[in-house]
Write a protein that binds this DNA or RNA. Structure first.
Length: 279
DNA sequence: CCGCCGCCCTGCTTGC
DNA sequence: TGCAAGCAGGGCGGCG
């Protein structure tokens, strides 16, 4: 593994969810679900009074997409499987006959003999079966969607005293940015993570908006960041961990000014930044 | 509406 | 060397 820095977890965020969703869409489009195996009930959520397995069996996967950090498996019945990977969740395609890992929590056995496996060492993730209607009402703007404008972003920050980094992590405002990409975007925009959100100047807001979009796009191109746990649907690591500018780099020189990167804690999250060039 | 805290979890790191 | 405690952290429910 090339990434060998101080311990900092990989949390599947928007670019990782996007990479997984694209891979699953290619592999699973049109496949029928023959049998559903729930290996750990707590990681699976069904609508009240419904059996998760019974509802899904016989349905067909129409496409796989993403919303924020969630992977969304859309079914022919108009139902959806919403997968929240949290810290260590993985969605893996197991080719016919391949044994699932011991951390497998849920399996969809498909008609061609392959299986989709939800695995999760720490058991914090969830697979939720959604019957119909909007499930994502509490999720905010998609940072790579048309709705994410400089003006909209400025309005989101306006009057808020919350540290800007805490606001970037709030999924009800912006859906998909997690700890890695919040740190990276703030470094790129030269903004101190603890700055009250509402006090950013207009040029800073514009810069940060651009950095968020840029960092997420580049991370998707490199198929996400793999630090501890993240792998895509085929078990391959991403490449963005090799181009991180601040995340996990405590004590190492800033790529811009050469000063030592520091780690502080903000809203109980490790925060890496440069004291000299992030103002 | 807002902010804060504890919980869920396991594995790695730290300290004695 | 061994073992226990501490830490990591996204989302959510509860509280003030």
């Amino acid at each position: 593994m090339e990434f060998n820095r101080e311990r900092a977890c990989t949390l599947p965020e928007l670019p990782e969810a996007e990479t997984i969703a694209r891979g699953l869409d290619r592999a699973l489009r049109g496949r029928a679900i023959q049998r559903v195996e729930v290996r750990r009930r707590k990681n699976v959520v069904a609508p009240a009074g419904r059996s998760f397995a019974r509802v899904l069996e016989g349905d067909r996967i129409e496409r796989v997409g993403r919303r924020g950090k969630y992977v969304v498996i859309e079914l022919q019945s108009r139902r959806r499987l919403v997968v929240q990977l949290r810290m260590t969740g993985r969605l893996l395609i197991l080719c016919r006959g391949r044994r699932p890992p011991t951390t497998a929590r849920m399996m969809l056995h498909l008609e061609n003999g392959d299986a989709l496996c939800y695995a999760d060492v720490r058991k914090l993730g969830r697979v939720t079966l959604v019957e119909n209607g909007a499930w994502d009402a509490r999720l905010g703007t998609e940072p790579l969607g048309e709705g994410f404008t400089v003006g909209g972003f400025a309005a989101m920050l306006s009057g808020r005293t919350t540290p800007i980094k805490v606001l970037l992590l709030d999924q009800r405002r912006l859906a998909g940015v997690g700890n890695i990409y919040a740190c990276e975007a703030l470094w790129a925009a030269r903004i101190r993570p603890s700055r009250p959100a509402g006090r950013l100047t207009a040029p800073e807001v514009r810069r940060l908006h651009g950095s968020i979009v840029d960092v997420l796009r580049r991370a998707i191109e490199l198929r996400g960041s793999s630090i501890d746990d993240y792998v895509d649907e085929s078990g391959s690591e991403g490449g963005f961990q090799n181009v991180l500018r601040v995340y996990g780099r405590r004590g190492e020189p800033c790529f811009r000014c050469g000063r030592s990167i520091v780690r502080t804690v903000l809203a109980a999250r490790g925060t890496w930044w440069c004291r000299n060039c992030q103002k």
